[in-house]
Design a protein around this nucleic acid. Structure first.
Lengths: 152, 152
DNA sequence: AAACGTTGCCGAATGAAGTTCGGAAGAGGT
DNA sequence: ACCTCTTCCGAACTTCATTCGGCAACGTTT
């Protein structure tokens, strides 16, 4: 993980479809060198994959929300079952197991508020291990590229 | 937005570096057709970009957390200033303006718990508009590909 | 200090992929 | 039945990915 690797990651985070030649040109190295570096980053798992960023609004899913849920009991089997059951639902785009007041944070993308409500009462309330939940509709999302190295 | 477009999006969400030829082969269309479809999806903004998925642990940022913050007053200028100030910090990977008890949800990736604490007291507490915040360390993240069409 | 092995980088060659474009085929409208 | 607009295709052309042998720099050993 030297400066060259960091630069590769920075560039591919912003545009994963950069051609290897263009990437090499920007970094001032030969394409073959660049290719080898990228391959090594993938094999080491530093780069986990490449994903298209899709506009959820264009896919008729303009309403996004976070739902924080509390489970009881907080046992492994309950956590794993909940994870498996909720994680496969198409409305769910991401899940996080967290510390704090809540046990789960669920990111949703749905057609409208009605479908959000339906999800909450049909999918969450229905499960007996869910003892409470709070939902927050997302007004705006801001994503920040990871610059690899943190100062200090 | 027909079935072909949906299939393109599904595939590029899972692997944005699929070759156009391979993508065309999977969909059973000519490469030129596929290329035109992908270009149209980009121009229409359905595909917003392509991003490498980086392992934050490999970048020495193994600790992730969500921080929910409340601001006062909830005026446009306060919101915008906070957004601009916090959004540029390298620890921040994403921000969400939300409804509910909290006004902001901030996703962080830092070296360790000590740096998380430092961020909270140096960056958040310090700001007078932040009247309270709660932090949740992330144990596990699960991402779900967006399947485009929701049932029903 | 010299010899050795290791590692990373380069550049050329080959094969594969991206890209363009003219024409054909189908759908919808008149 | 004709026209038009759109979509798709396949061939030609350009650009790119990928491999591989060699070279240079570095660290290690003797």
């Amino acid at each position: 993980m030297d400066e060259l690797d960091s630069a590769i990651i920075r560039n591919l985070q912003l545009d994963a479809r950069l051609t290897n030649r263009e990437l090499a040109r920007r970094l001032g190295v030969a394409p073959s060198t660049c290719l080898e570096r990228v391959r090594a980053l993938r094999e080491r798992g530093v780069i986990k994959g490449y994903h298209a960023d899709v506009d959820l609004g264009a896919l008729n899913r303009p309403v996004q929300a976070f739902v924080a849920a509390r489970l009881r009991p907080t046992s492994r089997v309950v956590i794993d079952n909940f994870k498996a059951a909720i994680g496969v639902l198409p409305e769910v785009t991401a899940m996080y197991v967290v510390t704090g007041d809540d046990d789960f944070l669920i990111h949703l993308a749905v057609q409208d508020l009605e479908h959000l409500h339906a999800f909450l009462i049909d999918r969450l309330s229905q499960r007996r291990e869910v003892i409470s939940f709070r939902s927050s509709v997302i007004y705006e999302s801001i994503r920040n590229p990871v610059l690899t190295e943190l100062p200090r």
